[in-house]
Amino acid sequence: MTKPAYEGKQPSFFTTNAEFIVRSIRHSLRNVETMIMAIVLPVMLMLLFTYVFGGAIDTSGNYVNYVVPGIILLCAGFGSSSTAVDVASDMKNGIIDRFRTLPIHSWCLMTGHVTASLLRNLLATGIVILAALLVGFTPHADVWEWLAALGIISLFILAITWLYAAIGLVAGSPAAASGYGFALLFLPYLSSAFVATDTMPSWLQGVAEHQPITPVIETIRSLLLGGAADEHAWFAIGWCLLILIGAVIWCTWLYNRRAGRR
């Protein structure tokens, strides 16, 4: 044997996760185009809605306050969607075979992708909020309300990222993953993100009021701008946890099924 100095053993669960998280963060940092798109696009949309459509939607001139919570979620959706592509690429590339022959739980690869997505998205959310403040967003929230809003946003990012990770596993290729993921990005438009739901036709109101995005947006809105959040908050947390748990289970099942056959 070569060098008994390098005795291989099973790395700890912590080391395994840490390595995969570092790997995914490096990927995110080096994938400059994706990173820029995930930040620039929501900011552009915010400017578009505030300055172009805003006047027509809300003639009081206060539309920026209404639209920011929705833009934050839209931003999270865009930012997380690249997880589907990243996961699909790993599955297609031979590297998954290498990871699966190591003495580790190779599923931790997923934690790496999800954690990197969370960090990436929190950064993007921060930038979007800063940009919003520059164009006239005037939140009324104390530290606890900000923290609560951040908590809800993080929970939403986690839930949707796991969902995108599962989509990445379902898709046969990175291109397909990108395509499937795109469909989810329409959900914020069918919610109270841009217009109050009571302005929609009644059949659409039903959809818009009962889909997961609306309570999350309403919760963030009331936390940052004042107003009672209670009922929306429970629905928001419930939806996010439901999606999160469902997506993690789906991911695990898919991973065990998918990883073996390329």
Binding site: Y6, G8, K9, P11, T16, E19, R23, I104
Partner: peptide, 9 residues
């Protein structure tokens, strides 16, 4: 390095 860590080094 990553694979070294994942092999328990």
């Amino acid at each position: 390095r990553m694979l070294g860590r994942l092999n328990g080094l």
